[in-house]
Simulated scan of single mutants.
Amino acid sequence: MTDPFVAHRSLLFTVAYEMLGSAADAEDVVQDTWLRWAGLDTSARAEVRDPRAFLVRIVTRQSLNRMRTVSRRREDYVGQWLPEPLLTSPDVADDVELAESVSFAMLTVLETLAPTERAVFVLREVFEAPYDEIAEAVDKSPAAVRQIAHRARTRVAERRPRATVDRGQQEAVVQQFMAALSGGDLQALMDVLAPDVVAVGDGGGLAPAAKRPIVGADRVARLLMAFSRQQAAYTMSPTWLNGAPAARVDLDGAAAGVVSVVVEDGRITRLYAVANPHKLGRLGEEAALTR
């Protein structure tokens, strides 16, 4: 018989990652959860009626504790903070709700929520946990959790991208984007960017990146074209990140950055570029994400 922790490990990692936006922190939370589970004796485990709910509750509490720590750490972060990118298989996109929940766009929206709001939103909207289970996990009453869930849904709805596109269209736009950059074609790049496009870069003070979001097709295009002039040193290739088509940038065979985009009406409306080397270490192995 498979140990419940082993059976639900991918789920536990996904829950923690969506709450924290960091694979490294999520792995630490999952490890702490394992230690707590392994520390139960046989009789204690036998009393657990729903191991999945029990383990999710531990992960949630550990994630909330970690959120308070990382929030202080991010106050000192240099420049814009973006989630740690995960290499995923195209199959993740088959579960549309899961793919959206781990997208850069959604994770950056979730960063605007208070820790408990984020936990409640993730557990309810993504994993469809009952209110009473969530209440136990966040140490609130079911009535309070319902109110928190409503407030979080409203805030997320105000900030999330309005349109969704199929993977074929997003792949085509990413290909256009990469071709324009590689060819140094300013007009082709302008054609693929929405007039009010917003570009956010995360270098963490360790790699070049704008410290504030860049707004407008002209400004974003000129910034990207400055990068394209260095294409002799860099190579760009398509990849799948966080459940969506994206671009990977390599230097001397090693990852130097990734670019994830939001596409609406055939154009890029938001562009997320991560160059912080501390966030690029997991691009060699696909992350197992599940609901």
Rank of each mutant, 00 (worst) to 15 (best):
P195Y: 07
V92N: 08
G79K: 05
A232C: 04
L123P: 00
V109M: 05
L241F: 09
A233M: 12
R73A: 07
Y272N: 02
R267F: 08
V70K: 10
R162I: 03
V263I: 10
Y77S: 13
T14P: 08
P195C: 01
D196V: 02
A44S: 10
A163V: 05
L223K: 10
V173W: 09
E133W: 11
R9N: 10
G253C: 07
D265Y: 13
A24Y: 04
A137E: 00
L87H: 14
D139P: 10
G257H: 11
S43I: 04
Q147R: 10
F104T: 01
V262P: 03
A247W: 00
E97N: 13
P208E: 05
A188G: 13
A256T: 08
I58G: 03
E264K: 05
A233F: 08
V174E: 11
P51F: 04
D196R: 10
D76H: 15
K140A: 08
W34P: 04
A246P: 05
Q176T: 00
L35M: 15
I134Y: 04
T116W: 02
A114P: 01
S10I: 02
A226R: 15
M67L: 14
V126D: 10
T2K: 10
V138Y: 01
S89C: 06
T164H: 14
H8G: 06
M190Q: 15
R155P: 02
V126S: 07
R49A: 15
V192F: 06
L289G: 06
L280Q: 07
L86T: 02
T154E: 01
A16S: 11
R74W: 10
L107M: 15
Q230T: 09
T2A: 12
P238D: 02
R49I: 14
G184D: 00
V258R: 12
Q170L: 12
A135Q: 07
L223T: 12
A172W: 10
D250L: 08
